[in-house]
Design a protein around this nucleic acid. Structure first.
Lengths: 135, 135
DNA sequence: GCCACTATACCGACCATCGGTATATACAAA
DNA sequence: TTTGTATATACCGATGGTCGGTATAGTGGC
């Protein structure tokens, strides 16, 4: 079973969990807060989603347990990205960018519609991303 | 004034169906082929996924039936994006780009892993890792 | 006659996510 | 004191989009 990467797109909560951990190890509850912050409170992970995903991603080899701290009897389990996890997140970034530019191009040819409300911002971010990728 | 979708991320097949229709009306089977072509055969829609999605998106107001052609007794139902559908796809493009740049930035600060090497190399390494992990 | 292609459509199964709940500790407010 | 909120992990049933397969039906090739 490949599944892990192979081009299969990941769901948004999964993507945000990996993104939250990309900067360094964090424990579950910290991931929950980071994801909320990163997404501007748009994605608020449920406990069920979070811990199920952490277990699943660990099994898949994208995450690993960094360390466990016993804080006043409460357990704090820190997770971090494995190399495979970084690669998977990186591949997802590439996939998202290519899909986004494909859709944007087709929306443009369609005519009338020009990327609602975010035209300038979108173009700017696109150029910035292109520059970053090329550097 | 995006608003319509409220930020909920769509799944990849749904995204590709909207993208396929962004250039102009197509019938179901045509969408299936366009999606396969756009994704380089990575996303091959199953009949169940396709027609269920077309129905669902029509109910949600993102698609509408453009026309129906009776071709030698066979029905050809053409769908097209509504304004809401174009807006939803545009919003999704913005969301994907912002999420991608966020993840890329965090991967960079992490140090070890850099996107600088380029998309193709990155994708290749991801696939290589997947193949290795399968063993 | 059989198979592949076009074309729409239904069905059961899978699984990630959602929403809720349970557990336990600490600290602040009523 | 009791309640409520925040931290922190974890289980449970329900939902829903996708997957994989199948049904139907006409066309064209071998």
């Amino acid at each position: 079973m490949v599944g892990i990467v192979a081009g299969m797109a990941m769901h948004e909560p999964t993507f945000f969990i990996l993104t939250a951990l990309a900067e360094g190890p964090q424990h579950g509850y910290g991931v929950m807060q980071t994801v909320a912050r990163l997404s501007g409170d748009r994605v608020t992970l449920r406990a069920g989603t979070l811990y199920a995903a952490l277990d699943r991603l660990t099994t898949e080899g994208l995450l690993t347990v960094d360390r466990e701290e016993a804080l006043q009897g409460r357990l704090r389990r820190y997770y971090r990205l494995t190399d495979a996890g970084s690669a998977a997140l990186g591949a997802e970034v590439v996939r998202m960018r290519s899909a986004a530019s494909m859709a944007a191009a087709r929306l443009r040819t369609h005519g009338g519609f020009a990327l609602a409300a975010g035209g300038a911002t979108l173009a700017a971010s696109g150029l910035a991303l292109a520059a970053g990728g090329a550097a």
